[in-house]
Design a protein around this nucleic acid. Structure first.
Ligand SMILES: [Mn+2]
Ligand SMILES: [Mn+2]
Ligand SMILES: [Zn+2]
Ligand SMILES: [Zn+2]
Lengths: 155, 155
DNA sequence: AGTCTTGTTGAGAATTATTCTTAAGAAGTA
DNA sequence: TACTTCTTAAGAATAATTCTCAACAAGACT
């Protein structure tokens, strides 16, 4: 369990640095997102955490996720409205968003990583980071009923 | 009002092609988003439309926006969960998302436009389109209280 | 180990966002 | 004008998220 220990250490340090307490709830929530490998929504995190901490409330999961996000340990993933999802993979990477089921898949790309933020952007504000977002139909959805038909592709 | 007429023509043709009716509601909703120049959320569109069509219901705005999105006349903008926003600017462009107020700003970039979708991505599904998404603090938010402090920048 | 202080949590109410149901209303057609 | 069918308005119903507040428990200090 190397990753788990790393995550715990990172959590501990960050909480201490910010004068926050290391609670069971924060531990479980963070580990759940970190171990998930995907981009779970709040209720999915709630489910996962309940396996180890059966009485945790949904509200605590919300509060904790937003707190972890303030601390930079997780980041909210932009989805198409319905619900927030969180990502614990904080290194630079990119996203493929399925327009049908809403799932978000990570992918790495050396070529995309080299892209520099264009000057045009800095006139809008202070840029923290960037990533490429692809939209389309994921393999799962492709199989259960066409995915190539429409698409309104642009460039 | 060249743009307005263009938009109306596009709407008319698309609706006809798809056997849908050209109603006052659809006209006003589409023109509102197209003229806004920004990425309004549903209730903002509702407000705008009500100025010309005082009795339009919120539900109709929802229905119409999703229908226009099916038709490829507008597109839902991925935000951080809270609410859907729509974009009528369908040419290739990129987004700057303010992490504080949630506003989404467009920007064009010839250099970013040249980026090709990497092969890695096609193993995840059928890609329709792509855009670069920057996160940070917009000028407005920068002014009313620091925006440079934190940031959790990655690459 | 026991006590205190104060940040955290759980429960449930309260909000907000979005969708559903259904009967009345308006486009396009004959 | 009358008819058919697609659309809409209203309000109820869901789903998502936040708020309130008393009980709880981490960490600090005996
Ligand atoms: Mn990710
Ligand atoms: Mn845009
Ligand atoms: Zn999918
Ligand atoms: Zn802002």
């Amino acid at each position: 369990m190397k990753n788990r220990d790393k995550a715990l250490a990172r959590l501990k340090e960050t909480l201490e640095t910010n004068g926050l307490r290391m609670t069971q709830q924060r531990i479980e929530v963070y580990l759940a997102v970190a171990a998930s490998g995907c981009h779970p929504c709040v209720s999915e995190v709630h489910e996962m955490v309940r396996e180890n901490l059966p009485t945790v409330s949904l509200d605590t999961v919300y509060r904790t996720l937003w707190k972890l996000s303030e601390l930079g340990l997780v980041a909210p993933v932009s989805s198409s409205g319905d619900r927030v999802r969180f990502d614990a993979y904080m290194r630079r990477h990119h996203h493929f968003v399925c327009a049908r089921c809403g799932a978000v898949y990570d992918f790495d790309s050396p070529s995309l990583d080299e892209i520099r933020i264009p000057e045009e952007a800095w006139s809008l504000g202070c840029v923290w980071n960037s990533h490429m977002e692809l939209r389309g139909i994921c393999l799962g959805c492709c199989n259960e009923g066409g995915g190539t038909e429409e698409g309104h592709a642009e460039g």
